[in-house]
Computed example of a mutant assay.
Amino acid sequence: MTARVELDEPRCVASGLCVMAAPDVFDQRDDDGIAIVLDEHPPDELLDEVREAVSLCPAAALRLVGG
C-alpha cells in the first residue's frame, strides 16, 4: 500500500512547520498561509520528513495513512 498524506484544511493554522520539515511535500498558499499538499503519495525516501511534519503540526491537521 502506498502512503498517502491527508490535510484537514479547516484545522490548519498556517504555522508553516510542515513546509520546513518536508518542503518537497508541503507548501503554503500565498494569500493566507494555509498548507498545500504538493505530493499526496510521497516517495519512501521522504516519509521520515512527512512523519516529522505530521508530528510538528500544532493543529493536528496532517495525517500519514499507510506509511
Rank of each mutant, 00 (worst) to 15 (best):
5 V>G: 02
8 D>T: 11
17 L>G: 14
47 L>C: 04
37 V>E: 01
5 V>C: 06
16 G>A: 14
22 A>E: 01
9 E>K: 14
51 R>P: 08
40 E>P: 15
1 M>W: 10
44 D>I: 06
40 E>C: 10
62 L>S: 00
5 V>D: 02
24 D>M: 12
36 I>T: 13
24 D>F: 10
21 A>Y: 05
28 Q>N: 10
66 G>P: 04
63 R>F: 09
53 A>R: 00
51 R>M: 06
55 S>W: 00
13 V>L: 11
1 M>Y: 15
9 E>F: 09
30 D>C: 11
56 L>E: 14
37 V>G: 01
26 F>Y: 10
50 V>R: 01
33 G>S: 08
22 A>I: 00
23 P>R: 02
43 P>R: 07
63 R>D: 15
28 Q>Y: 04
46 L>Q: 09
49 E>D: 15
44 D>W: 02
17 L>K: 12
46 L>C: 08
36 I>C: 05
8 D>E: 13
66 G>C: 00
52 E>S: 05
58 P>C: 01
48 D>I: 07
32 D>S: 05
50 V>C: 05
29 R>L: 12
38 L>A: 13
23 P>L: 03
22 A>N: 00
24 D>R: 14
65 V>S: 03
27 D>N: 04
33 G>K: 05
12 C>N: 04
46 L>N: 04
52 E>N: 10
43 P>A: 09
51 R>I: 07
36 I>H: 06
39 D>Q: 11
25 V>I: 07
43 P>H: 08
21 A>M: 11
61 A>V: 06
48 D>N: 11
31 D>L: 12
30 D>V: 14
43 P>V: 08
6 E>R: 13
55 S>T: 06
10 P>K: 04
14 A>S: 15
12 C>M: 08
21 A>Q: 08
49 E>T: 09
3 A>M: 04
54 V>N: 02
26 F>Q: 01
18 C>W: 07
33 G>R: 07
63 R>K: 15
54 V>Y: 00
55 S>P: 02
31 D>N: 12
3 A>K: 00
23 P>V: 04
66 G>K: 00
28 Q>I: 06
29 R>V: 11
6 E>I: 10
55 S>D: 13
27 D>C: 03
64 L>Y: 09
24 D>L: 13
29 R>I: 12
23 P>H: 06
43 P>N: 07
22 A>S: 03
4 R>M: 14
59 A>Y: 06
9 E>I: 12
34 I>T: 15
32 D>C: 06
49 E>V: 08
60 A>H: 10
54 V>Q: 01
4 R>H: 15
28 Q>F: 07
43 P>M: 06
51 R>Y: 09
45 E>W: 10
67 G>H: 02
9 E>M: 07
22 A>Y: 00
17 L>R: 12
19 V>N: 08
3 A>F: 02
7 L>M: 06
27 D>H: 04
52 E>K: 05
20 M>A: 15
9 E>C: 08
13 V>G: 14
10 P>L: 02
32 D>Y: 03
4 R>E: 15
40 E>N: 12
43 P>Q: 03
